[in-house]
Amino acid sequence: MSLAKDLNLPIKHAKTVLPSTCVEVHGIMIDTKSMIAKLPQNKVQALRSLLNMYRKQKKVTLRELQSLLGHLNFACRVIKPGRCFLRRLYDKTMGINSKHHYIKLNNDCRADIQLWHEFIHDYNGCTLLTGDRFISNQTMNLFTDSAGSKGFGIVYSNEWTFGCFPLQIQQLHINILELYPIALAVVKEALQLAPHLNKCPAAIPNTNK
């Protein structure tokens, strides 16, 4: 600080932070001691209010949808998996210029909003910082895919499995159905996958964007 003063460099004291293990970076609190990224509670509360407002609506204006997407997109800085639940909402804004134009929200869009609502309702704003300490599915030779109307498939090394979804989950969101073969593969191949999963978490992508 004294050096900046000697060099006549302007300092914005409101944004000046002394050395600390917890600092705010672009609106996100980063705690390097606890290794967490924290979404400010005012952002969480705003999300809860917006999602509660829109989760049952069948029509919204372009301005309203863009406002909701802006809040959700900011939340995805901390909630990384959330982006796959924004794609269909963003698609609804394409080709529309008037801020007051009403957009019809179909069942899929409302399902995405409802999923966000259920998650945010109990979310404390904190996410563990894991960095790049993930092992890829290519390293494990594990690949999965799901189709809501057909079923799922699993390929692990030189083995393969396929099947239909149980009746009690067939109507769930495709993003949830994508998790079923992954969980089944981990259970089925537990002994073979254990050496990989004991070292670090696994990153298994799905094809649903």
Rank of each mutant, 00 (worst) to 15 (best):
K58P: 00
E118C: 13
I96H: 06
I174C: 02
L68K: 02
P166Q: 05
F162C: 10
C76Q: 12
S67Q: 15
K99Y: 05
S34Y: 05
R48H: 08
R87I: 09
A202G: 14
Q138L: 09
T161A: 05
C22F: 01
D122P: 00
V186Y: 13
W116T: 00
M94F: 08
L184I: 00
W116Q: 08
K188A: 04
A194C: 12
N97T: 07
G131V: 10
S67M: 13
P181M: 10
D6F: 04
T21C: 09
I113T: 07
D31I: 02
A203K: 02
S49M: 12
I103E: 01
L193D: 05
L105D: 05
L167R: 02
T61N: 12
K188L: 11
A37T: 06
K33M: 11
L142Q: 01
N175M: 07
N206Y: 07
S146G: 09
E118F: 06
L86N: 03
H121F: 14
T61D: 06
G27H: 05
L51F: 03
P195Y: 00
R87P: 00
Q170I: 04
F165K: 02
I96R: 12
C200Q: 15
P181G: 05
K80E: 11
A194E: 14
Y156R: 03
N8C: 12
A37H: 04
L39M: 14
E64F: 06
R88A: 06
I30W: 15
L172S: 11
K104Y: 08
L115A: 06
Q114P: 00
E118L: 10
H196K: 08
V155L: 14
P181R: 06
Y102H: 12
L89Y: 00
A185L: 07
W116L: 01
A111F: 03
L193S: 08
A37K: 09
L50K: 15
F143W: 11
G125K: 08
T127Y: 11
S49D: 13
E64K: 10
P205T: 08
G153S: 07
L184K: 09
A183S: 13
P201L: 08
H26D: 08
N137S: 11
K15M: 09
E118A: 11
L86Y: 03
K33Y: 07
C126D: 13
F152N: 06
D108I: 13
E178G: 01
L39W: 04
Q192M: 13
T16K: 07
L197D: 01
H173I: 06
L7F: 02
L89N: 02
L65A: 04
N137H: 03
Y102I: 01
V25K: 08
S136C: 07
Q138A: 08
E189P: 00
N107L: 01
L177M: 05
I176L: 15
L18T: 10
F162A: 10
K33V: 01
P40T: 04
L128E: 11
K43L: 03
I154G: 00
I182M: 12
R55N: 04
D112K: 10
L3C: 02
L184T: 03
N208Y: 12
H173S: 06
A46E: 09
N106I: 07
L68R: 06
T32F: 08
A37S: 13
M35W: 12
D108A: 13
D122F: 13
N158P: 00
L69W: 02
E24T: 15
D122H: 14
V17W: 04
V186K: 11
E118K: 15
